[in-house]
């Protein structure tokens, strides 16, 4: 595993306004994530885990500080370029799966590929192979509403991986799943992400995940605390 930094966050500050009052989420937050590292992000509800993932992906912008992903300072990019950066370098896994309901399982996986380049037969074969690996080979033409929660999350993982991004961001991926299904999903992430040498940042409460992570950090009092300080 290379120790080169995949993500470098410097002095990150973020706040939002509600009912005329400004609430600070982060202040002077710093974080380095190594290439191929599996980082678990802990914190109470509302502590800012999702916000941090959004800032790393460029979906949201900080008030201050910078986010550098694979050597690109995404906080300095325009909205359009951030979108293109996400398209090529990032895979996102959401708690509520967020598959596109109007596309079949196969098409949901083909969409990130099509955004990168024109589709080829090889792409379709790759999608079929990945689905096969996930035990969803017979679900290529099925629409998401026909799938169980676990199946939908497996498709969501496949969608995040299909275009082979370097960085995977997962926001409570097992939050809506039962214990057994959650365990299966984590195994899959372990196999497909960690072992493939991709960088994975996961916001979660799952104890099982904590055991598999390379490093654990927690958001406390508007800044990050390492696992040692956290005491787990």
């Amino acid at each position: 595993m290379s120790k080169e930094a995949a993500i470098a966050i410097h002095q990150l500050g973020k706040s939002y306004e509600e009912s005329g009052r400004r609430h600070r989420i982060f202040s002077g937050l710093n974080l380095h994530v190594n290439r191929g590292e599996f980082l678990v992000l802990l914190g109470r509800s509302g502590s800012g885990k999702s916000t941090l993932l959004n800032l790393i992906s460029g979906i949201d912008l900080p008030d201050s500080g910078s986010v550098i992903v694979n050597g690109t300072e995404i906080t300095a990019l325009s909205e359009h370029n951030r979108t293109l950066f996400r398209r090529h370098n990032l895979g996102f896994i959401f708690q509520s799966y967020n598959l596109i309901p109007t596309l079949s399982v196969g098409e949901n996986l083909l969409l990130p590929l099509e955004l990168v380049k024109p589709l080829t037969r090889a792409d379709r074969d790759a999608v079929a192979a990945l689905l096969d690996k996930l035990g969803l080979a017979d679900r290529y033409d099925t629409y998401p509403d026909r799938l169980s929660g676990g199946e939908q999350q497996r498709v969501a993982i496949a969608r995040a991986l299909i275009h082979e991004p370097d960085l995977i961001l997962a926001d409570e991926p097992t939050g809506n799943l039962d214990l057994e299904t959650g365990r299966l999903v984590l195994e899959m992430l372990d196999t497909l992400v960690k072992k493939a040498g991709k960088t994975l940042i996961m916001a979660t409460h799952s104890r099982e995940v904590i055991g598999q992570a390379d490093r654990i950090v927690s958001i406390r009092d508007r800044s990050l605390v390492s696992a040692d300080a956290f005491g787990s």
Partner: peptide
């Protein structure tokens, strides 16, 4: 809104 937000998140431009 959320569905369109997901599309934006996976790299679809405005």
């Amino acid at each position: 809104t959320r569905q369109l937000g997901v599309l934006r998140a996976i790299g679809i431009t405005p």
